Amino acid sequence: MDVIPYLAALSALAALGLAFFFYKAVEKESPGDERMVFLMTEIQKGAKAFLQAEYKWVAVFGVIMAVLLAVVIAPLAAVTYLLGAILSSAAGYAGMT
């Protein structure tokens, strides 16, 4: 029996638990005074606008690469590539949010 997949799954669950712990710890803290909250919201707006502009170009690149992978390697390679790109984009969005 190979134990590595189980260790990987256990590590992933531990990492998610730790991330949730830190999320709750940060969420309990005060966001700051009125000026800090204003600056925070402006930075968030800018970050979201940047991600929207970037993801438009990344989507075009991803579709082109998926077509190339489907033709050159295999259709399943294109599906896995797109799934990885979508999940990576979601992680980037969650991280910026």
Rank of each mutant, 00 (worst) to 15 (best):
K45F: 08
P75I: 04
I86H: 01
Y23P: 00
Q44L: 09
V71F: 03
A85S: 10
A66N: 02
A19H: 08
E34G: 13
L39H: 10
F61M: 09
E42H: 10
M65T: 12
I64N: 11
L69W: 03
K24T: 02
L18F: 02
L82E: 04
E29V: 04
M65H: 02
A53S: 01
E27H: 07
E29N: 06
Y55K: 14
A19V: 06
A70Y: 14
V60M: 05
G32D: 03
A85M: 13
A78L: 05
A19G: 10
K48D: 14
V58L: 09
K28S: 06
K48W: 04
G17M: 05
F20L: 04
K48L: 13
L87H: 10
M65D: 01
Q52P: 00
I43R: 13
A53D: 01
V79F: 15
A74V: 03
A25D: 09
F21K: 05
G62D: 08
P75T: 03
G84F: 12
F21V: 13
M65I: 12
F21R: 07
V58P: 00
E29Y: 04
A53M: 05
I73N: 00
Y81Q: 00
W57F: 09
G32K: 03
G17N: 04
G84W: 08
E42A: 13
A70E: 11
F38Y: 14
V67E: 09
S88W: 11
L83C: 07
P31Q: 05
L87D: 11
M36C: 10
V37M: 11
V26D: 05
S88C: 03
A77I: 00
M36F: 11
K56G: 08
A25R: 15
A85C: 09
V67Q: 02
G46S: 14
G17E: 09
A85W: 04
G17K: 06
A47Q: 07
A25W: 05
L87T: 13
E54R: 12
G84C: 07
F50M: 08
S30T: 11
K24W: 03
E34W: 15
A77V: 01
I43D: 05
A85I: 03
